[in-house]
Simulated assay, not measured.
Amino acid sequence: MTPANFIEALHQEIHQTRYGQYPAELYDPIRYIMNLGGKRLRPLMTLMAAYLYTDDWQKALKPAVAVEVFHNFTLMHDDIMDQAPLRRGQPTVHEKWNHNIAILSGDVMLVNAYELLLAVETPHLKRVLARFNRTAAEVCEGQQWDMNFETRWDVTEAEYLEMIKLKTSVLLGFALELGGIIGGADETNATRLREGGIDMGIGFQLKDDLLDVYGDPAKFGKQVGGDIIANKKTFLLIEALQQATGTIKDELIGWLSRTEFDKQEKVQAVTAIYDQLGIREITESRINKYFAEGFANFEQLEANSTRKEMLLAFTHQLVERES
């Protein structure tokens, strides 16, 4: 088995999953967003985690798709809240249809996720549903914190890290834990999978923050400096606001306060401030800390060594990505 085998099986399962038919306006948007692609990282990790503990990893396919459906449900609603025009280079659901349809289709996606989770075998079902409910609530909590931060300039590093943990990382942790539970992992190993996934997820988000400023435009896949232009409160900006003093802080606040500016000039000026304050090095250190903690959890897994090595090797590839 290789990750490619899991990816192929996952794509086939997603393709053949049925969400409903009529009214078309309710179900067409679901098929639309699910066909936009994406990395499918979370359901893939569910399958790989299941394979650690069972040869019958295919029984994790429908639950893995449940994770992806839930993830896309959150994206559909997030896009409404962010008034985002594009998702993966295509019009968002609320732009292609309208806000009300996007809200209602998202609601049905959440129902679909529960239906897919019912494929979990009875001995594990109650435990999985309880963990999913907690995770789903945490994702909503993280989104609310993120929206709260939009009007605050006193967001601390600890608050930001907790926000990204809830908004993005706990779902990766659940995806791995889900696979472990389905495969037959005991409580200790299922917890290691979850905690490892959460640590890796935080590291990935911090790396996204870093690449938005320091990434190679040819590899990053989107505009470098977009967070700076939008005054988005990333780890780098929060750290810079805490570290800066005197004229450097005045200059940074000045750029954040301007309503009219040359985008390239602002990106260059704020990046230069980050350079002066050593923000890149601080961020890289924190990224490495979370990745190290994630790998430590995975290394401690009591599982088939060859299969565990595949999970570790695949995760290392994700860590080294630049897009």
Score class of each variant (00 low, 15 high):
80 I>H: 07
72 N>E: 00
103 I>V: 12
117 L>T: 10
83 Q>K: 12
74 T>D: 03
81 M>H: 08
54 T>F: 00
108 V>E: 13
70 F>Q: 03
118 L>K: 13
73 F>R: 01
52 L>V: 09
125 L>H: 10
62 K>M: 08
59 K>P: 04
122 T>W: 10
81 M>A: 14
99 H>I: 15
110 L>C: 13
84 A>M: 11
86 L>D: 15
125 L>K: 00
75 L>F: 10
70 F>H: 10
124 H>L: 12
54 T>A: 01
111 V>S: 06
71 H>S: 00
91 P>A: 06
75 L>M: 07
64 A>L: 03
64 A>N: 03
106 G>K: 09
115 E>G: 07
76 M>A: 04
73 F>W: 06
72 N>I: 06
81 M>F: 06
69 V>T: 12
67 V>I: 11
129 L>H: 00
127 R>K: 08
76 M>V: 15
52 L>K: 02
66 A>E: 02
65 V>I: 06
87 R>I: 05
75 L>E: 05
88 R>Y: 09
120 V>I: 08
104 L>A: 12
87 R>G: 08
82 D>M: 10
129 L>F: 11
112 N>R: 15
116 L>F: 09
102 A>S: 09
89 G>V: 09
112 N>T: 13
69 V>W: 05
55 D>Q: 00
113 A>R: 06
57 W>Y: 08
127 R>W: 06
68 E>Y: 13
65 V>P: 02
107 D>K: 05
111 V>D: 08
118 L>V: 09
81 M>G: 06
68 E>G: 07
73 F>E: 02
103 I>D: 00
63 P>W: 00
76 M>P: 08
66 A>F: 02
72 N>M: 10
73 F>K: 07
107 D>P: 04
100 N>T: 14
111 V>T: 07
88 R>L: 06
90 Q>M: 12
89 G>L: 13
103 I>A: 06
65 V>R: 10
89 G>T: 14
112 N>Q: 15
59 K>Y: 05
90 Q>S: 13
113 A>I: 01
123 P>A: 13
92 T>N: 09
56 D>Q: 13
126 K>T: 07
89 G>H: 11
86 L>A: 13
127 R>S: 13
96 K>P: 09
60 A>G: 00
128 V>C: 04
59 K>N: 03
106 G>M: 03
67 V>S: 01
60 A>I: 02
106 G>Q: 12
86 L>I: 15
90 Q>C: 11
74 T>P: 12
76 M>I: 06
92 T>I: 11
104 L>F: 11
90 Q>K: 14
